[in-house]
């Protein structure tokens, strides 16, 4: 099995005619994702020609894509000024899952958007994330398909390209994945570590988890405590930024919220205290996973 997306996913691409949207639509179709529609306001009625001659209809609104093509998931590549609006439109149109790839959406636009999406009961991944891939079934977003392979490991990461590195390490060691999820690094994101860990916990085919975090905030620590209480499969963690210099910080607000909890050292300590094996470098995630799988 896999989480969030699989071969029943019917995807609409918002921003399908842009540089990134069109490039990655080709990549998603080539991977086997069922892309059923595109949306670019003003280009409704045209179509997008994917490799192999498949013609994907373009609509002006997500609502049409849902009504006419049965879209049940959306991926968003529209520019930052319009992306928060695009997320709300997709949620309002009734898709069950949205992945927002766009980087640079104003954070206060996202606080309102997050509240709307939550009320609509829609799962939002991102923004500013690479999306996700269920190897052999579907990919939504920009994770390169060729570095993945089907198998028993779930991968969740706050970073984009570091997710690829982790997946690449597993695949090169012959260890496949159920689903690889990049949750994004923005302050306001739709899906956090615990949401993904919980979905992996409910997936009978996920037998081990790799969790990739970064310095800053307390999300990883909260997730680690959750893992201890709720998961009985092996989890391996990596934290990027072990050597990052301390920043010049203005104001006290950040420190009042999180104290000094944001360093890599602190996060790795909390991982270990909660039974998560810590990898010191990306290559080191392989052996504890292999051991955990009984290999």
């Amino acid at each position: 099995m896999s989480i969030f997306i699989d071969d029943s996913t019917r995807l609409v691409v918002q921003g399908i005619t842009g540089r990134d949207g069109s490039f990655h639509t080709h990549q998603m179709v080539a991977y086997g994702t069922n892309v059923v529609a595109g949306v670019t306001p003003g280009k409704g009625g045209q179509s997008f020609e994917a490799e192999g001659g498949k013609r994907i209809p373009i609509f002006n609104t997500v609502e049409e894509a849902v009504r006419k093509e049965g879209a049940n998931a959306s991926v968003i590549y529209v520019p930052p000024a319009f992306a928060a609006g695009a997320i709300v439109e997709a949620a309002d149109a009734g898709v069950a899952f949205i992945a927002a790839i766009t980087e640079g959406i104003p954070v206060q636009d996202m606080t309102r958007t997050y509240a709307f999406v939550k009320d609509a009961g829609v799962r939002l991944l991102g923004p500013n994330c690479p999306g996700l891939i269920s190897p052999g079934k579907a990919k939504v977003g920009i994770i390169p398909g060729q570095i993945t392979m089907p198998g028993p490991v779930g991968v969740v990461s706050r970073s984009g390209t570091l997710t690829y590195e982790a997946v690449f390490q597993l695949t090169r060691a012959g260890i496949g994945q159920t689903t690889c999820v990049g949750i994004g690094g923005d302050p306001i994101i739709g899906t956090n570590f615990i949401d993904v860990l919980s979905a992996f916990g409910d997936d009978p085919e996920t037998e081990a988890i790799v969790m990739i975090g970064e310095i800053g905030g307390t999300d990883e620590q909260e997730a680690a405590a959750w893992v201890r209480e709720n998961l009985d499969i092996p989890v391996v963690g990596f934290i990027a930024g072990q050597t990052a210099p301390p920043g010049r910080r203005m104001g006290h607000a950040g420190a009042i919220i999180s104290g000094s909890a944001g360093t890599a050292e602190e996060k790795m300590k909390v991982f270990e205290a909660n039974g998560i094996a810590v990898a010191r470098r990306p290559a080191d995630i392989r052996s504890p996973i292999a051991e955990g799988l009984g290999g």
Binding site: R19, D20, E103, S157, R158, S159, G160, T161, L162, T163, Y164, E165, G185, I212, E214, I215, F238, A240, G241, Q242, T243, A244, R280, R281, P282
Partner: peptide
């Protein structure tokens, strides 16, 4: 990517070197 950039700096240190900078060329 910022995460990979930090992990790269960490690895430079791991192998006994010293990074001259953090540089993320970004997405697109």
């Amino acid at each position: 990517g910022a995460g990979l950039a930090m992990a790269t700096m960490d690895l430079v240190k791991y192998y006994g070197g010293d990074p001259a900078n953090f540089l993320d060329i970004g997405g697109s």
